[in-house]
């Protein structure tokens, strides 16, 4: 018996060693091959290019970027642009998703039907198509910038995006920089481009459909008995929601919602199709200008993996806290 056990152990060890060995060998082979091919074909490699001037402009950015800055700074701008669209997207999607989730549970038939229709439409059409449609609507149906509509004082909407007043620290604290019609463009103030708007709306609308389902499932999971018991205790519908249903539903909602947030962030990589300069778009441009595909793709992968890991860590933290609270209670 002991012999057999030992033999099985040896077999298992052999298997694993083989798998790991094969993997290492495979990785080594691919790496060697890529390296060899790059050298043999006279293609430059290495991350040195990151320190060189990028030489291209980025259409919109949170920082003051210009072409004289280095590639790594361009990547940073791209990453910031990804977050700049993903974070407000999260908020918008959450609000919209919660509203639609509640609508689907409403006693009102019309609201229920609307909610269902929304979910079924937005979930079943590829996000790419939705982004393109939003973008088309914004750039085709809005007036050209020369005839921008000023729907509120200082707010201009046109094919060039939305221009709005912004606190201008440079002018004087507390004063607003007002956009005005310039020769070609709206000048001054702040603008968000139609590319940004399309990505924001597209991501939010798409994710909201999934979040709505998560919210609905979370609320439905709270047993009827509890709600009835609470009602018997004389709690109003609102109190029942606030004190009985939501706290329990939230535990079920948060983990899948967290994944959905991560998906939204990953999906922001589709921004490249409507010309929004997110991380992928910057990596793509850099790849084309320098020809250093391996490096650019490696950076992309590393950044997205880091985001995924961070989300996973946050969720794990939340779960741990819940468990601790659960056991304390």
């Amino acid at each position: 018996m002991r012999r057999r056990f030992a033999e099985a152990g040896r077999r298992a060890f052999l298997w694993q060693a083989l798998a790991v060995g094969l993997l290492l060998l495979g990785g080594w082979w691919v790496a060697g091959r890529v390296e060899g091919e790059l050298a043999a074909r006279g293609i430059r490699s290495g991350f040195g290019f990151l320190l060189q001037p990028a030489g291209f402009e980025i259409g919109e950015s949170l920082f003051d970027f210009h072409a004289g800055l280095a590639y790594w700074q361009a990547f940073l701008v791209g990453f910031a642009n990804t977050l700049r669209v993903a974070l407000p997207g999260l908020l918008l999607a959450t609000v919209l998703g919660a509203l639609i989730g509640f609508a689907r549970l409403s006693p009102n038939f019309l609201l229920r039907a609307l909610g269902t229709a929304y979910v079924e439409v937005f979930r079943n059409v590829p996000l790419l198509l939705q982004l393109l449609t939003w973008y088309f609507l914004l750039t085709e149906k809005l007036p050209p910038v020369a005839d921008a509509v000023e729907f509120l004082p200082g707010f201009f909407l046109s094919k060039s995006g939305l221009a709005f007043p912004l606190p201008a620290f440079a002018v004087a604290a507390g004063e607003l920089a007002w956009p005005q019609r310039g020769l070609l463009n709206i000048e001054g103030g702040a603008t968000v481009t139609p590319e940004y708007l399309a990505v924001l709306l597209g991501l939010a609308a798409y994710s909201a459909a999934y979040l709505a389902e998560i919210v609905r499932a979370g609320i439905l999971s709270v047993s009827r008995g509890q709600v009835e018991a609470a009602a018997a205790l004389g709690l109003t519908a609102r109190q029942r929601m606030r004190w009985v249903v939501l706290p329990q539903a939230l535990r079920l909602i948060v983990p899948p919602a967290g994944n959905q947030y991560l998906n939204l962030t990953k999906n922001s990589s589709l921004a490249v199709v409507v010309g929004y300069p997110d991380l992928v778009s910057v990596a793509n441009t850099t790849l084309n200008q320098t020809g250093q595909a391996v490096e650019c793709i490696a950076i992309l992968i590393a950044v997205y993996l880091a985001l995924s890991l961070a989300t996973a860590a946050l969720l794990a933290l939340y779960n741990a806290r819940l468990l601790r609270r659960g056991s304390a209670a």
Binding site: G55, E57, A67, G275, N284, N288
Partner: peptide, 28 residues
Amino acid sequence: QSGTTTEKNLTDYFRAQGMKAKPVVFES
């Protein structure tokens, strides 16, 4: 269009002229 020399020339020229341009870059 991205992936062209065009993208960089645009930047160079406008910089040399001391003007600002906003490129809107598409991959296709």
